[in-house]
Amino acid sequence: MEAFDFIPVEGENLFSIIYRPARRLNGAGVIMIHPVCEEKLWVGRASTNLARALCDAGVPVLRFDLRGYGDSDRAHHDMNLSTAAADIRAAAEHFRTSENLTDLHLFGFRFGGTLALRHAADVAAASVAVINPLASGGAYLKKALRSNLTTQMSIFGEVREDRETLLAKMEDSGLLNIDGYHLSREFYTDCSQIDLSKKPVDWRGPGLVLSLVRSEGAAADGDSRRVFEACLASDPASRLTTLPYSPIWSEQKIFATGCPQLFDPIVDWFTNSAPSPGSEVG
């Protein structure tokens, strides 16, 4: 069963969906944290189908929109890393209570994975699984700025506002437009400080890092390797694995719905590998 609802947080609302299995495997549940900007849109259908795959395996799942995203309250430029932290805590509390969970796991694509690792300790997560997490907020923002320049090229055939001009405008107006999303100066500044390889998170695992790569035998991407080494490698149960698969967080010629090849490692992690209470519930 899929239950749509709003979760209250600080007087505002988070849009949420709980996927409830007919029969639960154990007392564990998974919260999925979405990536940011247009990457959220591109992984949307695959996220829905991953939640359904986990639910079919007997694991309850909560998906929700951070404030400033999706159907949740706030304009996009009013979200920041503090509101994201409060949202994750509120979602975790709500999910634990409503589903009577004994263990809570986190999952995230890309920046959603970065947020999952940053807040795993806050919500006492039992484990985390991430797909191509971002190690550096600054590097991510550089790529996002490049997207603005690419948009200018496609519209005008030239770059009219270079990187420095855009950042100066952000200093002035407080906003930076990335693919139509308005990032606030506060978000930009805070996100720039994130560097999981130099400033690891408090939480030490266990966790799964799944790196989607171009071809069979290719090494995991640099971000996945850095995140794994800095945040998870100290726990012997942690794993870094690769899967040849297209980068579904960007526009593709194939509708990115996901498939068992992508979902199986995640489902396996949360049903077999990650710590769980073991007893069947519900």
Binding site: E38, G44, G70, D179
Partner: peptide
């Protein structure tokens, strides 16, 4: 197209 009810850059919202 194949996008959801929120739209690109939350245009529909």
């Amino acid at each position: 197209g194949l996008k959801h009810r929120v739209g690109p850059h939350r245009l529909h919202l």
